[in-house]
Design a protein around this nucleic acid. Structure first.
Lengths: 145, 145
DNA sequence: ATGCATGCAAAGCATTTGCAATCAA
DNA sequence: TTGATTGCAAATGCTTTGCATGCAT
């Protein structure tokens, strides 16, 4: 279970300062840990908690948190990144609603199934992505493609 | 086997005109059908064949070809889209070199393995992505992350 | 001839950065 | 106190768009 406190502890261990802006960002991420959020969504929600928060602060912190493996960044369709808290207890993948960003977790990871095949190709693997896209119950395809 | 001619035929069937710029773009895509290319790479290579080609022409055509399912668009890491010709004989996934963009195909598709689980979640699926990232033989991790 | 396609230049949007001021430790 | 962090504003990079011209059919 991820809490605000546990993330803050993780930050302190890394020697990072706990500014109000950073606290707000983390709170937002924890409160929305079942959804991918855009930087703008995180910005707007963070500003409710810490009004003076600036957009560049958001981006700088999202990068720091990504590098620390506290959050996970993905690009769904276009050129807008989305972020979610890393649920560090279990490796998992996602089903993502293309309209509202709501996600469900998939415990299944296909990587094991094909690792032997990859080795043959002489690639050194660093990352993988397995994501399903569609429309959730509430957003069921209207005039979307 | 995908040839320039077969793609051009497909375009004609759709009522699209065969301009020199469009021909050049298709040639580039066919010649590099084993690699994802960025729009810029496609631009530079196309201009070798058709010097007056403009960047906006590239983007307009990439969008048209994507909508016609002639090419496939993906976002690897950041906010730069990459494109490859659709190998329409078989559904497949990719191993992608994060440095040079070279790809290998993976015939295995994990989707079947979990379809039943997805149904339970009431998502209407439209797309999925299964991609492995790493460094190919030639680019073996240097100072990359 | 007709309208789809292009070139050009400007705009749009997400993201990044330089720098001086501010704040947590 | 001191370096990490922030706000601001400007810059960047990729992509899109409006409009007049050009070209394939």
């Amino acid at each position: 279970m991820i809490t605000i406190e546990s993330v803050q502890k993780k930050l302190k261990e890394k020697g990072l300062k706990l500014t109000n802006q950073r606290k707000a960002i983390i709170e937002v991420l924890v409160e929305n840990k079942d959804n991918f959020l855009t930087a703008e969504e995180i910005f707007l929600k963070s500003r409710e908690k810490c009004p003076q928060t600036n957009f560049s602060t958001i981006y700088r912190n999202l990068e720091i948190l990504t590098n620390l493996n506290i959050i996970h960044k993905t690009n769904i369709e276009n050129n807008t990144s989305m972020f979610e808290l890393v649920q560090n207890d279990s490796h998992h993948h996602h089903i993502i609603c293309k309209k509202c960003g709501r996600t469900e977790f998939i415990d299944f990871c296909p990587l094991d199934k094909i690792l032997s095949e990859v080795d043959k190709k002489n690639f050194t693997l660093t990352d993988h992505k397995f994501e399903l896209y569609g429309y959730c119950d509430k957003c069921k395809k209207k005039d979307n493609r």
